[in-house]
């Protein structure tokens, strides 16, 4: 299956080598968000929120993905 990933803020740097803020990633069917993070080399401790198809998911890294899902990854934010 293939999912589309967008990385926001400081997480954006993980996708830069793939060409931008967004990437298409092929994963085994039923893979979790955690597996997606591992595939992209993203440090799980840097991820604050995970949204799938526009909604923040409560199960975060354990969430099982489906073909065509859009995944948004957000780092935590402090003052600015």
């Amino acid at each position: 299956m293939t999912v589309t990933v967008r990385a926001h803020g400081e997480l954006g740097r993980y996708l830069k080598p793939l060409g931008g803020d967004t990437a298409s990633v092929a994963l085994p069917a039923g893979a979790t968000v955690g597996a997606l993070l591992d595939r992209l080399g993203i440090n799980r401790d840097e991820v604050w929120l995970v949204a799938v198809n526009g909604d923040v998911v409560d199960d975060g890294e354990d969430r099982r993905l489906a073909d065509g899902d859009r995944v948004d990854l957000f780092a935590a934010v402090a003052g600015g």
């Binding site: 926001h8 803020g9 400081e10 997480l11 954006g12 740097r13 830069k16 604050w48 929120l49 949204a51 923040v56 948004d72 957000f74 780092a75 935590a76 934010v77 600015g80």
Partner: peptide
């Protein structure tokens, strides 16, 4: 500079969407 690459790229507003998604 990789530690602040996001700040360079999208500025302090790089976190705006995250806050909105969190209700913050």
């Amino acid at each position: 500079l990789d530690l602040v690459a996001g700040l360079h790229d999208t500025g302090t507003a790089g976190g705006l969407k995250a806050l909105s998604m969190a209700g913050g």
